[in-house]
């Protein structure tokens, strides 16, 4: 695929109609085969030392998220404290990758996380629906970036995508990427609204071509959110994109991942589909809130030899 693809990639971004041609030319997803492979890989058993490693790796990949209308500055500050030291009684527990908040609370998170390795991610572009005009979306992005967020999670315009106005979606991502400056851009495809795996593949390539540093499954506000087959399709896209261009792009899965078992299944998928290289927080993330506590409980169970309880962890 790679050489021919590389040539086609240059051509793809020339204008809206060449983009449409490129996306239409992507091979269709074999739904049955994909789901079967995802299900088979999900049965793989990870035990003992490998599980210990997987738990710590997964913790370091978490984007600890709070995206509620009722978020307060106090809640964000305590979430930041938890992000830095997830399990205060076990100082060897790794910190999470980032804290993810709404843009108006990004400044609070930046202040609380100053001097730590934990990044601040902010959603933007009229999250979660993305229903607003370009100017508002860019202003939203600017608010996040000016507040000090080093990662921006944007949503694509699913309406435009489903109407087939790929060029508009592309231009919007490019504009937001520009507004991000040095900040990392994660592009949320909201796969639960894209209806087919073929669309997920198209949207993934579209976002990668437009310059998204990471493609992300979902906002967490729509069901179904992240699923293993969808993650497979997106991991294939970043792998093929890397083969064609040499550039490393990441994947973030978000929504509905609550247990260590789920998280480990995703890690297996990352290793098998994209490759070992992607098993790092800079290229793979979990967007989650309750997942972290389950990871910590399992970590404690491994260390203590008996099961622990949520009462022993901070909220």
């Amino acid at each position: 695929m790679s050489v021919a693809l590389a040539e086609r990639l240059d051509d793809a971004t020339r204008d809206a109609s060449s983009l449409r041609r490129f996306l239409a030319g992507l091979p269709g997803v074999d739904q049955v085969g994909l789901e079967q492979r995802a299900a088979t890989l999900a049965t793989r058993s990870i035990k003992q030392d490998a599980k210990r490693w997987a738990i710590d790796t997964a913790i370091s990949m978490v984007d600890l998220t709070t995206l509620e209308g009722a978020d307060t500055r106090g809640a964000v500050r305590s979430l930041c404290a938890k992000a830095v030291r997830p399990d205060p009684q076990r100082p060897d527990t790794p910190s999470v990758a980032a804290v993810c908040v709404y843009p108006d609370l990004a400044a609070t998170a930046v202040e609380a996380l100053a001097g730590t390795d934990v990044a601040v991610a902010s959603v933007a572009t009229a999250f979660p629906s993305g229903r607003s005009n370009r100017a508002v979306k860019l202003a939203d992005t600017a608010l996040a970036v000016d507040s000090g967020a080093t990662e921006v999670d944007m949503v694509i315009d699913r309406g435009a995508f489903l109407e087939g106005r790929y060029g508009d979606v592309f231009d919007e991502i490019v504009a937001v990427k520009q507004a991000c400056g040095d900040s990392h851009l994660k592009v949320i495809l909201e796969t639960g609204e894209l209806a087919t795996y073929d669309n997920v593949r198209k949207a993934s390539w579209l976002a990668l071509l437009a310059g998204g540093d990471v493609i992300k499954t979902s906002t967490g506000k729509v069901s179904p959110a992240a699923t293993l087959p969808v993650a497979h399709v997106m991991l294939q896209a970043v792998r093929d994109f890397h083969e064609a261009t040499g550039e490393l792009r990441g994947v973030k899965v978000a929504g509905g991942i609550r247990t260590t078992k789920d998280a480990i299944r995703y890690l297996v998928a990352v290793n098998e589909v994209a490759g070992e290289r992607w098993l790092t927080p800079s290229l793979f993330r979990f967007g989650a809130s309750s997942l972290l506590n389950d990871l910590l409980l399992q970590r404690r169970a491994k260390q203590d030899g008996h099961y622990s309880g949520a009462n022993y962890l901070p909220e």
């Binding site: 030899g305 008996h306 099961y307 622990s308 309880g309 949520a310 009462n311 022993y312």
Partner: peptide, 8 residues
Amino acid sequence: PWLASHAD
């Protein structure tokens, strides 16, 4: 034993 030692 797992029930007895379970912290929760």
